[in-house]
Design a protein around this nucleic acid. Structure first.
Length: 804
RNA sequence: GCGAGGAUGGCGGAAUUGGCAGACGCACUGGAUUUAGGUUCCAGCGGGGAAACCCGUGGGGGUUCGACUCCCCCUCCUCGUACCA
């Protein structure tokens, strides 16, 4: 082999790493730890696309670098393998989802190994493995015992076509995200997790983590904390009261009507006979539309008067009670007091139905629009003359002392719908006994395995296919009672909520993980994955983690300290890659043509990690050329002999070498891989141009390349005469003294325009520098006949002469 | 609407955070080597201009000796979100 040939050296070194367990990690607590986590993939049937290796290459570079810096690095990989596609494939072909999943995982693993990622494969986890989901079930038991899991009849997104209930995020425009089938709302018995109980801490503890601001903001908005008050309005002529939530209790005197959500439990009770038909029709119509549909049309307001009135506790005034779908049943109390003077939605509604509008905050013009700014309270009795902030305090005190309400904090966050009507998910460790008890499995009974079956069809009633497997569903308890297993399964999020903990101790069959190991490895230092998980996965995982923290199972309040989202890689046509557009790049093809190291380099060279950027196959030529050139610096392409000399590097090369060490080190730390590669290209260009083959220079360059192009670097390192893998060879250090220039090039400008350059000693005195600059020929020419007004001297950089 | 991010050569992108705009790479052009090249090497490559110079980082204003960088206004793009009381 004369030329650089990735197709022979890459498999060679992958085999070497496998055989020597080069990247196996021990719990060596004498070394500082670094836990670097990739979001594990769903092993789809189509295999890896080029987007996956982007994040994985970035973390692999960090990990390989950290190892060389003496860290004990945990860098694992696994499979988030439950999910609908394998089940749908089973329906179509009869292939068991486990078979499909195993096959897909084999493809993914092969592709990841092909790219030379330094995972500790002994720690691979698979969410569908009973030895894994045993502990997912165990965590559910812990949640249940803590009172955080409950059953509720909740209106859910029922998709008849898929025979399953979908999460809100899986419904787009009233259609299922997968397949585009119609979705309707229907109440169903569901498992819920009380994530709302953790709302405040999930919000506050965002301060403990180093996350992208966009992601933090999204989580904050999703949690949606707002401060306000609950106010009780007595319904006239009924033994009932309507409690509303408002963030503007200061505007209580401006409430001119109330609105209940159509689903509000009091609607039936308070509606007067005269309008019951009309109200009934409106309620029915609202029920047919999904919540998402209902909020589509923000501009126009609809609603119906119930015929009932309520009394404003603060002034005893009677105000009409309406129903409208602009009030959401699932937020706050499902009822509002309407203050059209100071809330645009209420204003729009009041205008539509000709309801009175009263000004209670001065400063706006309520004839034109609602005024939501600051101002002085007016028409508000005891609040008159106060500021908005003071009025809020005063009225909350008044409400509390008059038993008419209290200050509260409200959240947009809702409890987590945690059951799916599917086969291919974790079974709940729950038996419903004939006498109505909900019996949780003992730990010794876990895992509750998925039964083998040929029938994956949804029962149609809404129950999962598991209900078809009667000898699994029906059980007799030790005490002789009969029972039915829970037939719902857990959502795909379940397994991904805690996989990072299982990596710590993946083969433990006594417990989910050893607390001592957890203390050493947690928290995750760096977590890299797609921005599409900014809210759901990351919020759910944080929730579980906090519960586990409260139960003493983990030692840190937050699981993921630093978070980075890799950008999306577009097709060469600047469009999102998709099969239908035919612009998908297959990593296998790229590796075949250019090699894995070139693929890795190019993924990093394209641009900043977090940016969205288009793929360009000819661009791979550039990084491949880098590898070829470095190769030729070390190996004679004619004879395949090493052509390294032991001669010392001249000063300019020495300087460039140490500058490159500095640059690459800092860029890796800052995850600026594109500029790190550019720096190595510059060094390579210099060595090539200088025809320099010094051992010192080459060894350093190979070391710097090692995290980026690991096979290539191992091969050259070995050829350079080293017996050991380069993986743990100490990262090169730069000598700061060698980087300093004794002479520096200054730009000399007149009125800010660069007119000349001058070489000056590093420690040149200002006056000296200015004098020399003034003497330059081109400077003289530009100053001719003008007076110097000001002289700027920036040490090491430039001189600016201001003339007129 | 709201929130976050962005706009720099033909293209992807750099710019030590206020100090020589366009590093590095792709594409392209010219030259050398080669029987040949999707090879290698050398040189060029923002626009205008023989040149001196002039213009140039989405647009407009401002601060400054000096602005891709800071401030104000506007346009467009991408992502997220959407009556949350």
């Amino acid at each position: 082999m004369a030329k650089y040939d990735p197709s022979t050296i890459e498999p060679k070194w992958q085999a070497y790493w496998d055989e020597n367990k080069t990247f196996r990690v021990d719990d060596d607590t004498s070394k500082p730890k670094y836990y670097c986590l990739d979001m594990f993939p769903y092993p789809s049937g189509s295999g890896l696309h080029v987007g996956h290796p982007e994040g994985y290459t970035a973390t692999d570079i960090i990990c390989r670098y950290k190892r060389k810096c003496g860290y004990n690095v945990l860098h694992p990989m696994g499979w988030d393998a439950f999910g609908l596609p394998a089940e749908q494939y089973a329906l179509k072909t009869g292939t068991h989802p486990a078979t499909t999943t195993a096959k897909n995982i084999d493809t993914f693993r092969r592709q990841l190994k092909m790219l030379g990622f330094s995972y500790d494969w002994d720690r691979e986890v698979n969410t569908t493995d009973p030895d894994y989901y045993k502990w997912t079930q165990w965590i559910f038991c812990e949640l249940y015992k803590k009172g955080l899991a409950y059953i509720a009849e909740v209106p859910v997104n029922w998709c008849p076509e898929l025979g399953t209930v979908l999460a809100n995020e899986e419904v787009i425009d009233g259609k299922s995200e997968r397949g585009g089938h119609p979705v309707i709302r229907r109440p169903m018995r569901q498992w819920m997790l009380k994530i709302t109980e953790y709302a405040e801490r999930l919000l506050d503890d965002l301060n403990l983590v180093d996350w992208p601001t966009g992601t933090r903001v999204m989580q904050e908005e999703w949690i949606g904390q707002s401060f306000g008050a609950e106010v009780d309005f007595k319904v006239n002529g009924h033994d009932a009261q309507v409690t509303v939530f408002t963030t503007r209790p200061d505007t209580l005197f401006g409430a001119t009507y109330m609105v209940l959500a159509p689903e509000h439990h009091l609607v039936g009770q308070i509606t007067s006979d005269a309008v019951s038909a009309e109200v009934g029709a409106y309620v029915e119509q609202a029920a047919r539309r999904s919540e998402r549909d209902r909020v589509q049309d923000v501009a126009s307001k609809t609603g119906v008067f119930t015929g009932a009135y309520a009394t404003n506790p603060v002034n005893g005034k009677s105000i009409p009670i309406w129903i409208s779908d602009y009030v959401l049943a699932s937020y706050g109390t499902g009822a509002i007091m309407a203050v059209p003077g100071h809330d645009q939605r209420d204003w729009d509604f009041a205008k539509t139905f000709d309801l009175p509008i009263i000004e209670v905050i001065s400063g706006g013009n309520i004839d034109e629009s609602a005024y939501s700014g600051q101002g002085e309270l007016v028409n508000s009795g005891l609040l008159d003359g106060l500021s908005v902030a003071d009025a809020k305090k005063t009225i909350i005190d008044w409400l509390e002392s008059n038993q008419s309400g209290q200050g509260t904090v409200n959240y947009k966050l809702r409890d987590w719908l945690f059951s799916r009507q599917r086969y291919w998910g974790e079974p709940f460790p729950i038996i419903h006994t004939e006498d109505g008890e909900i019996r949780l499995a003992e730990q010794s009974e876990l895992p509750i395995r998925l039964p083998e079956t040929e029938n994956y069809k949804p029962s149609g009633s809404g129950e999962s296919p598991l209900s078809n497997v009667s000898d699994w569903v029906n059980v007799t308890l030790d005490d002789g009672r009969l029972g039915r297993r829970e037939t719902n399964t857990m959502p795909q999020w379940a397994g991904s909520c805690w996989y990072y903990l299982r990596y710590i101790d993946p083969h433990n069959d006594e417990q989910a993980w050893d607390p001592e190991k957890e203390k050493y490895w947690m928290p995750v230092d760096l977590y890299v994955g797609g921005a599409e998980h900014a809210v759901l996965h990351l919020l759910y995982a944080r929730f579980w983690h906090k519960v586990l923290y409260d139960l003493g199972h983990v030692s840190t309040p937050e699981p993921f300290m630093k978070l980075i989202h890799q950008g999306i890689i577009l097709g060469e046509d600047n469009q999102k890659m998709s099969k239908s557009r035919g612009n998908v790049i297959n990593p296998d093809d790229v590796v075949n043509e250019y090699g894995a190291d070139a693929m890795r380099l190019f993924e990093m060279f394209m641009g900043p990690l977090e940016a969205t950027k288009p793929w360009k196959t000819t661009g791979v030529d550039g990084v491949r050329r880098l590898l070829d050139r470095i190769w030729r610096l070390a190996v004679d392409p004619e004879t395949d002999a090493l052509r390294v000399e032991d001669s010392a590097a001249p000063d300019d090369i020495q300087k460039a070498l140490h500058r490159t060490i500095k640059k690459v080190t800092e860029d890796i730390e800052g995850m600026r891989f594109n500029t790190a590669i550019a720096a190595m290209m510059e060094l390579t260009n210099l060595l090539t141009k200088s025809n320099h083959h010094g051992r010192d220079a080459l060894e350093i360059l190979v070391q710097l390349m090692a995290p980026f192009a690991p096979h290539f670097s191992e091969e050259l390192w070995a050829r350079l005469g080293h017996q050991e893998s380069i993986a743990y060879v100490k990262w090169p250090q730069y000598d700061a003294a060698l980087i300093i220039d004794q002479m520096q090039t200054y730009a000399v400008a007149i009125n800010g325009k660069m007119r000349a350059q001058i070489e000056l000693p590093r420690d040149v005195a200002k006056d000296d520098a200015l004098a020399q600059a003034r003497g330059l020929e081109n400077i003289q020419r530009h100053m001719d006949g003008k007076t110097i007004r000001k002289e700027i001297f920036v040490p090491g950089r430039m001189i600016n002469l201001v003339v007129s």
